[in-house]
């Protein structure tokens, strides 16, 4: 039977169709978020089911997750992104003990039991400094696409120290660095280090391995290395990191959770 997971994140809406017989992803889709979340979610869902050649009536259950989960009125139930990310990561990497998810608006660190259940979790709740939003602000300021930040960072010779704990102040700091002749490459590498050091501070002392990196920010080249350096642990990027939450939601839909 086919089940669906919808992850209504702050930046994008993701849909995954999951076949519980083969334990496999049948189809998936992603669209940028907008004002009318539920319409967007329906549109992505329709697109994905059409692509897979599956009629709506043949989709067993739908679980919505993510920041906008409660708006998805055609879902059967909602489950938080913490539980869904854990489940999605466990599907791809059953050995994972720590999950770092850096999304557009928040970041979280999950500690998992050997069977994939969440043991506990921490989330940033102060500002955008440890999130993908920081990268967007920097990309805008430097006039490059977010997707190109990784390539820039890899050319850095000496990452800048970004001392501000706040994205708005950090932006001012970046303007100052540019004015003083610092290269965009070094600035981007500094921002990556700043984001990951926030994650490390959130993680505290106990970070069990293997550590798996998920969420949209995991797609940006160099972020995994920055995270490895901040945590002092090897970090593996999850398969299709943007879809982990939606996949977990679909798997939980299949389980009847």
């Amino acid at each position: 039977m086919i089940f669906a997971g919808i992850d209504a994140g702050s930046r994008t809406i993701k849909v995954v169709l999951y076949d519980d017989n083969g334990c496999r992803v049948v189809a998936s889709g992603i669209k940028d978020q907008g004002v009318r979340q539920v319409d967007l979610a329906k549109a992505v869902f329709d697109e994905v089911t059409e692509k897979a050649g599956i009629e709506r009536k043949n989709v067993g259950r739908i679980v919505a997750t993510g920041y906008g989960r409660t708006a998805i009125d055609f879902a059967n139930t909602t489950i938080t992104e913490i539980t869904c990310h854990a489940c999605g990561v466990h599907h791809w990497m059953p050995d994972a003990r720590t999950v770092v998810d850096i999304g557009g608006q928040d970041s979280k660190l999950l500690r998992l039991e050997p069977d994939g259940r969440v043991r506990d979790f921490v989330m940033n709740d102060r500002c955008a400094a440890g999130t993908g939003r920081f990268l967007e602000v920097v990309a805008e300021r430097l006039g490059v696409r977010v997707g190109d930040l990784g390539a820039l960072a890899q050319m850095a010779t000496n990452a800048c120290a970004i001392s501000s704990m706040c994205v708005v102040f950090a932006e001012t700091e970046i303007i100052g660095l540019l004015a003083s002749g610092e290269t965009p490459e070094n600035i981007v590498a500094g921002v990556q280090a700043s984001i990951t050091s926030r994650i490390a501070s959130m993680a505290g002392r106990s970070v069990a391995e293997p550590v798996v990196f998920t969420g949209g920010v995991a797609l940006i080249p160099g972020m995994d290395k920055a995270l490895e350096s901040a945590l002092g642990r090897k970090v593996a990027v999850c398969s299709e990191p943007q879809l982990t939450g939606a996949l977990g939601a679909a798997i939980l839909a299949a389980r009847g959770d």
Binding site: I82, T83, R117, F121, M123
Partner: peptide
Amino acid sequence: TRISALVET
């Protein structure tokens, strides 16, 4: 989200 996740956990 935080409280719900704690409850789920």
